[in-house]
């Protein structure tokens, strides 16, 4: 019974981070029609920046905010320097067909990932680093009993919940959020009604960069930091996004928690070695049985 509760708590905190990763992927997918495989490379980079600041003696919160800003800037740079020129040329040559328009940005994002990982390796020596937590990460003990979670776990849940609330409010209540929803729904109509869709796209990349940097900051204390550590998180986040339908923001969050629980259960009750096999089977099952994600609307969609 105790193991079960611990597993559920572990699954929930990890799931919260996966939800952020999936959210980042879905934001860019809705905004630009691209799955950004470099996303956790950007997060790794901004987490290294935070870690360097902390080592230099700055406070956690200062480093935290700078990392989020770096995430936003990196996201915008990826769009402005690579994706926008790429889509601008998309009518020519190799990019002339639908299949290649879907494929080439994937390859470009892998190129970005390679560049970011090499740069991080050059700058930060590729040594594995720990990363601090802002609050204690030993199990809390209310009423003298050991609870199955730490203050840091609670911190993760609160930060992620706040992020989701802010994101929801942004999309529902602000003009820019409305413009982003319009662009995701139909870029052509959005453009005709006066929305500058290329600006909206860059903003999607920047917000996605913030969400994934936040995920990087929250997951690194339990995973250590090296240029490649966050790659696996991206895979889980991708699966979570597909489970949620890839174009649904609430779906991606639910998908993140489902994946968190699934992985925690496999880790505890089966074997950590089998996590990726389980992930593959789960992903294939979802894609074959519910290709539009678990929360698909009736609209038929070609995956």
């Amino acid at each position: 019974m105790n193991t079960l509760i611990t597993t559920l708590f572990l699954g929930t905190t990890r799931g919260a981070v996966f939800a952020l990763v999936a959210l980042g992927l879905v934001l860019v997918w809705r905004g630009a029609g691209i799955v950004n495989f470099a996303q956790m490379g950007q997060a790794m980079f901004s987490t290294y920046v935070a870690s360097t600041l902390i080592i230099k003696g700055y406070g956690y919160w200062f480093a935290f905010l700078i990392a989020l800003a770096v995430g936003a800037i990196l996201g915008a740079i990826v769009d402005l320097a690579v994706m926008r020129p790429l889509t601008r040329r998309s009518h020519a040559g190799v990019l002339a067909s639908d299949s290649m328009r879907a494929t080439v940005p994937v390859i470009a994002s892998l190129g970005i990932l390679g560049v970011l990982q090499s740069l991080a390796g050059m700058i930060w020596a590729a040594e594995e680093r720990g990363f601090p937590t802002p609050v204690s990460d030993v199990a809390v003990k209310p009423f003298g009993k050991t609870a199955p979670f730490t203050k840091f776990d609670l911190f993760i849940i609160v930060v992620v919940a706040l992020t989701l609330v802010v994101t929801t409010l942004f999309f529902k209540k602000t003009g820019m959020g409305l413009a982003m929803r319009a662009t995701a729904l139909n870029p052509e109509v959005a453009r005709l009604s006066g929305i500058r869709i290329s600006r909206v796209r860059t903003l999607s990349w920047a917000i996605s960069g913030v969400a994934s940097s936040l995920a990087g900051l929250l997951i690194t204390p339990s995973a250590n930091l090296s240029p490649n550590t966050l790659d696996l998180i991206l895979i889980v986040g991708f699966t979570a996004a597909v489970v949620g339908g890839l174009d649904s923001l609430p779906g991606s969050v639910v998908g993140g928690f489902i994946l968190g629980l699934l992985i925690a259960v496999i880790n505890v009750y089966v074997s950590p070695d089998d996590v990726f096999l389980a992930l593959l089977v789960f992903l294939l099952l979802v894609l074959i049985l519910k290709p539009g994600g678990l929360f698909a609307s009736k609209k038929v969609r070609n995956v």
């Binding site: 997918w29 799955v35 994937v106 991708f238 992903l283 294939l284 894609l287």
Partner: peptide, 10 residues
């Protein structure tokens, strides 16, 4: 059954 990014991720 899959295209582009779905195929890449899978």
């Amino acid at each position: 059954r899959l295209t582009g990014p779905y195929l890449a991720g899978t």
